[in-house]
Design a protein around this nucleic acid. Structure first.
Lengths: 334, 334
DNA sequence: GCCAGATTAGCAAACGTTTGCGCCAAGCCG
DNA sequence: CGGCTTGGCGCAAACGTTTGCTAATCTGGC
């Protein structure tokens, strides 16, 4: 692998000059520039980002910690992040934290060792607050994504889960439903709680008191939606289901179909997230959606701006979700 | 951010000694070790991976180029890759190549500049061969994932797309189907071709000559499966569909449902990939599946072994897919 | 009490860049 | 013609590590 010195030797100039033509950082005579450029081409020289990083004390790398890239939410988020990084000449380290305290800790240490310029923390589960504190302690620029960490002095970008859930339930209420179940995510996810409490609030405001067994908890996967809905339909009390993410909703759709319950005629189902797949189930899943990729883009932009010092006070972006009307909800059966 | 010298000063030893206790690379007296460890803890010192990389000439970073992390195939693959990297103390740069020649080229240059130790090239589209050549030219350790690049002197890990497609079509043939359509992926994807040719071969072997309009081309997304199947059903010639990925299959399922065509009673549909969602459509999608995450793990392992010099001759791993029997296929209607 | 060998640890030169400082030649003005 | 500016470029010191070489001290055997 050739270095700046090889280029300098071949071009017959000092390596200072090579550096300056590479970075356009001070004027160089046409003659010298030309010789340098020729030498670079001939040797296939690429400046070493690691040496550069050592000298300039910035790596132009962002670290991203997500629980699991396999989850469409996070891969979409990641896509948004990577897009703006690519445009801004940043690279990204991907770390799957896996809802595992130890693994998240290791990821964080790796990112610290590697001297990334900033971290996007998108882990909605338990230890997030502790991670954020450690990052803060290490003076690492951080933006917290899709998680509300109140006491923390860091930029945050997230959606308003509670408002979204309220929106969903209000949609069902407007259709005349009263007995509305809620399929919740794992209790240790912060967003689960917010969505459940949106459901609760909307019901309360409408004067509906939910029975205890209208609230069922699973993980955020289709299998859970399927299993929970099966149990729910056996009792046959409710006329509508608020699934607190689309995968749960799709599982619910399947359970209803299996049991011959017609959606939306005798059961309405609404999801949350707005993943693409929801448009291709039959019936297509009505849901509460928000622009995940755009959130990733915003988060990355905020972080990069902060790194560049273009941003002084901490910011808090909250994006509002909206109803995506499809086929799985209808007026309550008479 | 504190450096090895700060630690040395605080511990009252030379920074050589600090380096040796950090790396356990030569014996250090208990006394000195203790003082160093205390100093490290007190300062919150993390050795700089960038300085280390500069000195040792290896970064312990792998670059991964995929077209689009949003595609469940690639996020699953990425997950496998990241898992083994984490275990082996490697970090990964994620690059979305986006089926865009220019962007892939930029990604590659970035990876070269950053002096990654190796590259996993998982871009199934056109310029892959050119990229692979450039990597080879730069003496970069490379493994090509899910793509057959014949003339190339690089490790390759992939599935046997053609055999999988044959398997799918043979399954349909065994159920008595003869008029079997194929929903193909984009022509410029190498894997599309392989799958189509598996379909063709299986039919030929059974003595079936496909009509021209049994082969429909789209992209690999649900919307295409939906649209293509709608057109297909309007003509009403075929009794079965081989969808060359699961998203196409799910789109097909939806189109059939919309038009009141009962699956599998009057139409059989089989997919390809084995994504989880296929189990939750109604009917659930029979498909040809393979262990994507394991492929990612294998590819990363091969690359890391090669970097470590534990591997001399180039290897070619081909994994065989198998039928995942669900509900969307049945005997041909009489 | 002395020397050989072992143990412990420091010095300094890399690694490949960026960048402040300063030198030289040429051009300009009076 | 001399002094001053200015354009063009090189020198060398960092940046934070790893590591070969070497020096100092200790231990034990005679």
């Amino acid at each position: 692998m050739s270095t700046i010195k090889h280029v300098a030797a071949l071009a017959g100039v000092s390596f200072t000059t090579v550096s300056h033509v590479v970075n356009r950082t001070r004027p160089v005579s046409d003659n010298a520039r030309l010789r340098v450029e020729r030498a670079i081409a001939e040797l296939g020289y690429f400046p070493s980002a690691v040496a550069r990083a050592l000298k300039t004390r910035q790596t132009r790398i962002l670290g991203v910690i997500v629980p699991n890239i396999t989850n469409p939410f996070f891969s979409e988020l990641m896509r948004g992040i990577e897009d703006v990084c690519e445009r801004s000449h940043y690279s990204v380290f991907l770390c799957n934290g896996d809802d595992d305290r130890a693994r998240q800790g290791r990821s964080l240490e790796t990112l610290l060792e590697r001297r990334v310029d900033g971290v996007l923390l998108a882990t909605p589960t338990g230890p997030a607050a502790a991670l954020a504190q450690r990052l803060h302690g290490a003076h690492m620029k951080t933006v917290v994504v899709d998680r509300h960490l109140p006491g923390l002095d860091a930029d945050q970008v997230r959606i308003d889960h509670q408002a979204g859930a309220r929106l969903a339930v209000e949609h069902l209420l407007a259709l005349g439903h009263r007995r509305i179940a809620c399929l919740a995510g794992p209790a240790h996810f912060a967003v689960s709680g917010a969505r459940v409490s949106g459901w609760r609030k909307a019901l309360a405001r409408a004067g509906v008191k939910p029975a205890d067994d209208w609230l069922l908890e699973g993980d955020f996967r289709a299998a859970a939606g399927h299993e929970l809905t099966r149990r729910l339909l056996d009792k046959g009390e409710v006329t509508a289901i608020f699934a607190s993410n689309d995968l749960l909703g799709i599982g619910a759709l399947r359970a209803a179909a299996e049991q011959g319950v017609s959606v939306p005629r005798s059961l309405s189902i609404i999801g949350f997230d707005g993943i693409e797949m929801g448009a291709f189930t039959y019936p297509a899943l009505t849901t509460v959606g928000y622009p995940i990729r755009a959130i990733g883009e915003t988060a990355a932009t905020v972080l990069i701006d902060r790194i560049a010092g273009r941003r002084t006070e901490t910011c808090e972006v909250v994006v509002a979700p909206e109803i995506i009307l499809r086929e799985s909800t209808a007026k309550v059966p008479p």
